[in-house]
Design a protein around this nucleic acid. Structure first.
Lengths: 232, 232
DNA sequence: CGCAGCCTTGACAAATGTCAACAAACGTGG
DNA sequence: CCACGTTTGTTGACATTTGTCAAGGCTGCG
């Protein structure tokens, strides 16, 4: 593993505070690999052999049942995924596939569990990370249960805008069909939802979104920190 | 706090392995209170001052937005709730109210965080608990996104049946209006969903459910361990 | 007994999904 | 660089699902 990547991983909240020895031994068993786009990295139901870290590219977490499937989340550098399955030594609840050419580090789950027992700083970091993940899913569930698809899209756009720096126009770095799936609707419905937001000053050209009337859109979307804020 | 309750709390997975001293000091700052039914214990958005433990009775976790509200989960004895907010020292994402007369223990959040730092067994237990909570919510989200309301009800009944011992007939210990909210539908829709399951051998008399044709219902519901199992 | 809350039902409306057709964007191989 | 085929996005017509409103029955409790 190149030194720069090693240092980048070290800087993750999850690893930043742990003892040098422990981090070194964790990395000794790890390996890093490049994957092309659209490769299924893990399949739901399989045992969780590795903690995964996305170093570059992006990964889609999704799930299927009875012929349907849905995108649950997107993982972007640099962060880990399926931490909970690794900790519990339980089967993956979601599948993962690369969305583009990606570089992924794999750390054997049993190493993670062993170091977790030995390094209390690492244990504390894992707790914080898991609590964060838990709260994110709760927010997603509130979004799903309390809002219509039009409201979910409106709030998604406002979040994305903020994430992109707050300017009126920004790029959608999602494929629309996948965005639809993340938001819990069909691609056709998303297409119509974009039109449905036109009266509130949203214009779409390809992947470019422009929010022409911020106040109007916010009055409709009613964003709420307990659903839409990333940090809290 | 009566000795029997003290021991019951001690036996929780979360506290079972921690050092005696630490448990004692955690309980020293705690207090226990009886609440009548329908009391709002915490309100979403407030700072998380206490970790709550339901000793008896039951508690509804719910959330509201823009005039709508939805039940997120039910907490039954003996277990804790809002652990994640306590750990992160962040505002509650959900409100909680008693469903019936309930006895609740309250442990100051800062004590939990302090002991967490000092006791690695306690830290490990918290991690396991959080990982469990996380996975439960992921399952709930898959249930919501991958299934229709009829399918959700069918699978809920099968889970409930298993939980009640597996017999063909069992009691619904939920108010129907709240079950509807948990399942993400209106009471009217739930009423019709029960009728919609009649062809698969489900009969409802008040709060009594009878599954007359197990195989038929399962063929329709297609239960899946990665969504419906409690433990994994 | 009478009130209040829950459950059910019917009629209707709104939201969302499905299917089919076509246009636009993309990638590949010539 | 172009031609081609594949995928993605859009649109229309329609079906299904789900929600809303209103009314009435049932139940439990003072």
């Amino acid at each position: 593993m190149p030194d720069s990547e090693y240092r980048d991983i070290r800087k993750l909240d999850l690893f930043a505070q742990m003892a040098d020895d422990n981090f070194t031994s964790l990395m000794r068993g790890a390996y890093v690999q490049n994957f092309p786009a659209q490769i299924e990295l893990i399949t739901e139901g399989e045992p969780s052999d590795f903690l995964h870290i996305v170093i570059s590219g992006s990964v889609d977490l999704f799930s299927a049942w009875n012929g349907r499937d849905t995108s649950m989340a997107t993982v972007r550098p640099i962060s880990t995924f399926i931490l909970a399955a690794t900790i519990k030594d339980a089967p993956y609840l979601m599948s993962a596939r690369t969305l583009e050419k990606s570089r992924i580090a794999l750390i054997p789950s049993q190493d993670v569990r062993a170091i977790f027992d030995a390094d209390s700083n690492f244990a504390r970091a894992i707790v914080t990370e898991l609590a964060q993940c838990y709260r994110s899913v709760i927010k997603a569930q509130k979004d799903l249960k309390l809002r219509t698809s039009l409201e979910r899209l409106a709030n998604y756009l406002l979040r994305q805008q903020r994430h992109a720096g707050g300017r009126a126009a920004f790029e959608l770095n999602f494929e629309k069909r996948r965005l639809a799936s993340v938001l819990g609707m069909t691609p056709e419905n998303l297409s119509r939802a974009f039109k449905g937001l036109q009266p509130y000053g949203v214009t779409v050209t390809g992947t470019r979104i422009s929010i022409d009337n911020q106040a109007d859109l916010e009055r409709f979307a009613k964003p709420n920190p307990l659903i839409d804020d990333f940090s809290t």
